[in-house]
């Protein structure tokens, strides 16, 4: 998959996961669709990016006498999901056009 496209999908999918409730690295991976091939390593830069663009907030919670960082979606993050869906509605229209051409 194209890297740019994949990153956009990855970010939106992480935000969607967090919309269900605050979560932490390992659990986010478990919730993501398998098609994204997400690993703990590929998730990290995505979380960093979402944090620095203000889409998520981070806080720590103690778990088994260590700290777990929880990620929580912000208003900016919610707006980003909405924007993603609007953009993809257009992409789907073009997809349908391309797909129809293939069938001819």
């Amino acid at each position: 998959m194209d890297a740019q496209l994949k990153r956009g999908l990855f970010e939106a999918a992480v935000l969607r996961t967090l919309k269900k409730g605050d979560s932490y690295g390992y659990l986010i991976i478990k919730d993501l669709p398998p098609e994204l091939d997400a690993t703990e390593s590929t998730l990290y830069p995505i979380l960093k990016r979402l944090e620095s663009s203000g889409c998520v907030r981070v806080y720590s919670v103690e778990h088994n006498s260590r700290l777990r960082r929880y990620y929580s979606i912000t208003n900016i993050g919610e707006a980003k999901i909405k924007k993603f869906l609007e953009d993809f509605a257009l992409v789907m229209k073009v997809y349908n056009y391309i797909d129809a051409e293939e069938e001819q």
């Binding site: 690295g25 390992y26 260590r66 700290l67």
Partner: peptide, 28 residues
């Protein structure tokens, strides 16, 4: 921050039943 993140996910993988080696290997 990066070290804390990877420290946490490795601990979470081990806690879910993976061996330390397998967990580190999964990170690539």
């Amino acid at each position: 921050k990066t070290i804390e993140y990877f420290d946490e996910v490795i601990s979470d993988m081990i806690e879910s039943g993976m061996t330390e080696n397998d967990a580190v290997e999964k990170l690539g």
